[in-house]
Design a protein around this nucleic acid. Structure first.
Lengths: 255, 255
DNA sequence: CGTTAGGTTGACTTGATTCAACAACAGTGG
DNA sequence: CCACTGTTGTTGAATCAAGTCAACCTAACG
């Protein structure tokens, strides 16, 4: 049981940061049956067209969703961190429309689809929390659309770095002034819709300008403020404010 | 009452195409209180940062979501058609992270937030249907990310045209071999992340090649098959299959 | 140590932008 | 009915951001 708490702790915390859960909700979440697995970096966790028998929760490590065009170009769609389900939507949609790969070595918990559906049915607040979680995912997609469509690659990269830092910080991972983004330049390129060569040039440019300080794959950011400005970053779209919308309670306090 | 049925018919139909509802669910949906409004083309329906008091359903006409970068560039995020809520997520997230504008003159029904939340709480299947609807929205965002990141503008435009045609067809709007996309070249540009000048050139190129036949703002497509191929379009991501995931029933039949 | 994945760099090309002018058309008011 | 005005669409020439190709470097690792 202590083990189960460890597995679901991050997810529960994330859910509760946006909508209230009671003790029974938390307990039901932590009582979900699961199958714990270790997967190596780069291993595929889900393939487009799959009808998975369970939802996969990241306990430790990073993963990313991606699609491949008919011409063979890869586009990364999102990066998932510990506490994220990589395929929550597939539980309800039935079929995966994207691939998921481990970015780093991961520890994942696979929860059977039926158990998830049962939980959603029996604990509406948990279902609500999961819904909201998918809505925040969608909001991040929207921001990526802007990143790809209307920001030049320099701003796009800065924006991406700000997003990762902020999300990891909120999830209680690292934070601080630097972070290991674990992504190769090729993966960054596939997230930004550009070529690895160009990522390299921008990274060096940012380094030269002092916006980032690189040490192998580790990045230090001397001034988040400067990076935020360079990327036109505002974290509104991450919807980090606590209890944005209670079940039927009063509207959230303005401060 | 007949009026209310007309208002919600398309939404109900869309919901039911993906998850089962019973008579009580349908009735509850159609009993939602609403305020009917006409809005002119280009009028703003929702602004980033708004905390709207209701959800807005498009009864007739088209609208689009967009964001504007700090540099002032606009990126269109999605186009909503009759039967779509333009801001369903905002009911749960509390705050809008995007703008919505009417693309054409619209008839919209505004449903108070509390009524929506109450409906979701009292009719879990309806809540589920709405959740799935937002999941399909997210899936479309993912495809747009690929469009912007990894397809050249020619493929991107073809892909977009295929998507609109398919969605309108399923919604019972037009379909056929041609359609009025109602968008100016500037709006197409803002959806594709390119310039209006370039949209113009691609459109003429497609015309010259016989992929589309233009008559003012009306487009005829002689061969959808050819256009699909040019855009690398597959409609898997629209999740149009009926009843992908029942509430707790057996897994969907494979055929 | 050799192998391999990832990173770096330069020379050249290209898809898309920019700017600027003009044409087509719709609506408006005299 | 026509002149005026604004929006949308069209086109060419110059420019630029990013891509391509190809070589080489570096560090990790069995």
């Amino acid at each position: 049981m202590t083990s189960a708490i460890r597995i679901f702790a991050r997810a529960v915390r994330k859910f509760e940061s946006r909508t209230p859960l009671d003790q029974a909700d938390r307990a039901a979440l932590c009582k979900l049956p699961f199958d714990l697995r270790h997967v190596e970096a780069n291993r595929t966790l889900l393939r487009e067209g799959d009808r998975p028998a369970g939802a996969t929760l990241i306990v430790q490590g990073l993963a990313f969703r991606h699609k491949v065009t008919v011409e063979g170009a890869r586009q990364i769609l999102s990066v998932q961190i510990p506490g994220d389900f990589i395929d929550l939507e597939v539980i309800l949609l039935g079929i995966a429309d994207y691939n998921v790969q481990a970015l780093t070595a991961c520890e994942v918990a696979i929860v059977p689809r039926e158990a998830m559906l049962k939980l959603i049915d029996s604990h509406p607040r948990v279902g609500r929390a999961m819904w909201i979680d998918t809505l925040v995912d969608a909001s991040i997609y929207r921001e990526w659309i802007v990143n790809l469509g209307r920001r030049d690659s320099r701003s796009g990269l800065c924006h991406l770095l700000c997003e990762f830092a902020r999300r990891l910080e909120v999830a209680g991972q690292s934070g601080g002034d630097g972070h290991d983004l674990s992504m190769t330049q090729e993966q960054l390129a596939d997230a930004l819709g550009i070529t690895p060569v160009h990522v390299n040039r921008i990274l060096r440019e940012l380094d030269r300008e002092g916006l980032v300080v690189r040490d192998h794959r580790l990045l230090r950011v001397p001034s988040w403020e400067a990076l935020r400005k360079a990327g036109g970053f505002s974290d509104l779209y991450l919807h980090l404010d606590r209890r944005a919308a209670g079940p039927l309670g009063p509207p959230p306090a303005r401060h």
